[in-house]
Nucleic acid binder design. Structure first.
Lengths: 152, 152
DNA sequence: ATAATTATTGCAAATGATTTGCAGTAATAT
DNA sequence: ATATTACTGCAAATCATTTGCAATAATTAT
């Protein structure tokens, strides 16, 4: 769904002089295919199926590089887990819903948000550069199940 | 400004059977006096001025206990720092602005937020239980300084 | 093509925040 | 006062993430 991370990344490399390695290609395409917001470890173990020699630290380094290039963003969605999750949705500002049962993520936006930001800026004389908004709750599927499936 | 954490904590103890120790008293009152959203270490070093034998792990344990009791909440405000910050503002749901220069925190709320939540719930058939909203930017003071002070 | 240059990798060890086991200390109950 | 056991300080463990370094491989110059 993402607008081809690999393409974007290649662009950045040409502009700023880096190297497109097999590892980066693999990580990028894995991230692109995954529909989730994976942790570094999830991304690694998924990509490692293609190339078992891929090292976790390479995943971290690639992810940081992508962050610098503005192609992914990292955040800790779940305050209870200490791992960061990486979000490949680059271009549009969007927000997240996190299902506290199944962990699924829904991305969303809302037209009123800029107005809230503007009100805040006006009221406090500040400049807001970025917004992080996360809803926590039960996704449609999990709230239908009545939470009865909760074993783990 | 907080509605006396110590009082609240004592209540919880009576109800659920714990012990009010000198350390807990110190930590609670320090947290109450601090106007910030301190990290465990900041809270510890502040409290340790009164009692140098106070151990950091006790601060962590007390903070976790308070979280369970619903008297503080922990979150990672700054995605770039890996330390958690602890927020003693308990009763009202509120949101945060974080100045990326001086690190100061402004708490706020906005009447439109419930409407955004409701729209989202309607649209996705979900139930939203809690919201985390953080604005990042420059506070009034720091944006006046023109960022000229930035040495470190 | 080939060799030179240097970004990137794998690995292992370091780091930093937070947690935990344990034996000693101290709050509450008897 | 004594017994009970929650809580503490300390040190060591953990977990995610980062980093130093020598080896590898992508690009550049020849």
């Amino acid at each position: 769904m993402t607008k081809d991370l690999l393409q974007e990344a290649r662009q950045r490399l040409q502009t700023r002089g880096g190297r497109m390695t097999a590892q980066r290609t693999l990580i990028l395409s894995t991230l692109d295919n995954l529909d989730t917001h994976p942790t570094a470890e999830e991304l690694h173990s998924s990509a490692a199926r293609q190339d078992p020699s891929l090292h976790l630290s390479t995943v971290y380094r690639t992810l940081h590089w992508l962050e610098e290039e503005g192609l992914v963003s990292s955040r800790r969605f779940d305050e209870n887990r200490r791992q960061d999750r990486f979000d490949p949705m680059l271009p549009s500002q969007h927000h997240h819903f996190l299902c506290s049962v199944c962990g699924s993520v829904i991305e969303f936006d809302h037209p009123q948000i800029p107005a809230i930001q503007a009100d805040f800026e006006r009221q406090h004389g500040t400049r807001v550069d970025s917004i992080s908004l996360v809803f926590y709750g039960l996704c449609a599927r999990c709230s239908q199940d009545g939470g009865s499936g909760g074993g783990t």
